[in-house]
């Protein structure tokens, strides 16, 4: 039983990170109907920038408490990613706004490849280690172990998601975003500047991605120029699972996917009597993606909008 609780906790931590990244996919899709495949790379850049800043600060050898260093790293990552998100939209997507949708999709993949290769040139092909800044503090709950870092990841993700929910549902900006999602032209007639709204959407998505990237690298202790690829695919799967374009769906999809992966990888070996092993962990995500696409193409919370499919 305690093993099951532990797998559930593992899944929730993983799922919170997926959810944060999935929000970036779903917000952009909701407004532009564009799958921004470069989004995974934005999380990677966030992780790398944070590591570079933290490493640089530690190298100075000043007696600064670790939370300050971490916050500075996180701040730098957030700023860098917001600029990156803004630039990606301006340079790669805006000129193609009226082009066939396939062109934008291919551009997105192109941006993703460019970012990966730039990161490889800047930070090298090696794994970069996250300095042991955060002390390992463990809590025992119902026989399961949870670290302080895991608690922070879940709580911070929850707070960010709640904040985003309020922003979209309760503020003028949120109303403008929802209006633009329904019809950019009509929203324009109502005095909303669609270009500005779209830019802000990309910037918010990149902010969440930067924080998710820092969380991933702090949690696993390393970062790599290629890390955004798989993370992006998983988050995209989470967004589709919840219903792409739907913000609550992305949150639910992310958490569900994390839990499915953990429980699946934890028990598949025992259930299949060793025939299938835990290296099938990554397969679960894509198995879920296929099931969703076959049986419920609009996702768990998605509305059926035939003309968008």
């Amino acid at each position: 039983m305690d093993i099951f609780v532990q797998q559930l906790i593992n899944g929730l931590v993983l799922g919170s990170i997926y959810a944060l990244v999935a929000l970036g996919y779903t917000m952009v899709y909701g407004i532009l109907e564009l799958i921004n495949f470069a989004h995974g790379e934005v999380t990677m850049v966030g992780a790398m920038v944070c590591l570079a800043v933290v490493g640089w600060l530690l190298g100075l050898g000043m007696a600064v408490p670790w939370p300050v260093i971490l916050m500075l790293g996180l701040g730098a990552a957030v700023v860098a990613c917001m600029v990156l998100g803004f630039s990606i939209e301006r340079i790669a997507y805006r000129p193609l706004r009226r082009a066939p949708r396939l062109a934008a999709l291919i551009t997105a993949i192109g941006v993703s490849i460019v970012l990966q290769n730039v990161a490889m040139l800047v930070w090298g092909k090696q794994y970069v280690s996250f300095p042991a800044l955060v002390p390992v503090v463990r809590y025992e709950i119902a026989g399961a172990t949870i670290t302080a870092l895991q608690v922070v990841i879940v709580l911070l993700s929850g707070a960010l998601m709640a904040g985003l929910w309020l922003l979209v549902k309760r503020t003028g900006l949120g109303r403008a975003m929802r209006a633009t999602a329904q019809s950019p032209e009509l929203a324009g007639l109502m005095g909303v500047n669609p270009n500005r709204v779209i830019s802000i959407t990309f910037v918010i998505g990149a902010l969440l991605a930067a924080i998710a990237g820092v969380m991933v690298s702090a949690y696993y202790g390393l970062a790599h120029y290629y890390m955004g690829f798989l993370l992006g695919l998983k988050a995209f799967t989470a967004a589709v699972l919840g219903g792409i374009g739907n913000i609550a769906g992305a949150m639910l999809g992310g958490l569900l996917l994390g839990v499915i992966e953990s429980i699946g990888a934890g028990y598949i070996g025992d259930l299949s009597f060793g025939f299938l092993g835990s290296h099938y962990q990554d397969v679960f995500a894509f198995f879920v993606l296929i099931l969703v696409l076959v049986f419920r193409p609009a996702g768990l919370l998605g509305e059926r909008v035939a003309e968008r499919a």
Binding site: Q6, Q7, H224, L230, E261, S278
Partner: peptide
């Protein structure tokens, strides 16, 4: 007591390790 597998690309082993911990 346990024989588990991962890949040379993976970074998340919590599921495997939890199962092993049991």
């Amino acid at each position: 007591v346990a024989r588990e597998y991962t890949s040379d690309r993976s970074t998340d082993f919590t599921a495997i390790l939890t199962s092993i911990k049991g």
